[in-house]
Design a protein around this nucleic acid. Structure first.
Lengths: 115, 115
DNA sequence: TTATATATATTGACTCTCGATATATAGAGC
DNA sequence: GCTCTATATATCGAGAGTCAATATATATAA
């Protein structure tokens, strides 16, 4: 296991990636669906702008962490369904562990009572 | 209590501010000391660059969340000691609550098992 | 006297999010 | 058949903030 590479400046980036990968780990989704689902799961707390979402999906796909497949059934508009790859799962589990360690350390410091 | 304003892009900013204010809530510190202390408390996880730390201190001071006082004893080099203000404490407690809600929601989503 | 640790500060490069904008189609209502 | 809205993907420029490098200065140790 690598050493942590979660730096505070990368926090939003890793959080966004983790949210996307976590949902894709549960099953295939297309972009728009991901955004809606994450917003619902978080009670409106995490809203993805399109200008944030799609670049991340393209980047993750370029790195082979997810794989996109255009689906064009006769009745529906074409959508690009993403599925998480084996590499993506490994990446996600590692990032998740690092983020949890990072965030619990953070909460520990700001939550600490005066001595 | 205001509605949350913690957006994912502001996460590092609010985390950095919260770390600084949390330590100052325990007692006065000067900048360099803050950086060292936070690094030690986090086991080396949170390292403040000077180019990050000082602009934040100046901003917090300008907003009257902290107050800086130059100290120049005869034997020591001059240091600027910061103390948290009443306004700063209120700000910190609110940010802390928002961050904890934000992060626990996040951990909840990425940690959720498949149904 | 030199080197190192302490201490504050600024600058430019870089990255990423955000909001705006663009394009296109399915379905609903008239 | 037409218009409007929701769905769906995509890109661009502005803005904010971190990071690494650099600058300055002094106390202390070798």
């Amino acid at each position: 296991m690598n050493k942590t590479n979660v730096e505070i400046s990368n926090l939003p980036k890793y959080c966004n990636e983790a949210l996307i990968l976590a949902v894709l780990a549960r099953g295939d989704r297309h972009g728009y669906q991901l955004a809606i689902e994450i917003e619902e799961m978080s009670d409106g707390l995490f809203k993805f702008n399109h200008g944030t979402l799609y670049p991340i999906l393209h980047k993750l796909e370029k790195e082979n962490l997810i794989k996109g497949l255009w689906e064009k059934s006769d009745t529906q508009r074409k959508r690009k369904y993403y599925s998480i790859t084996r590499k993506g799962k490994n990446y996600f589990y590692q990032q998740k562990a690092e983020l949890e360690h990072f965030l619990s350390t953070f909460i520990g410091i700001i939550g600490e009572k005066k001595k």
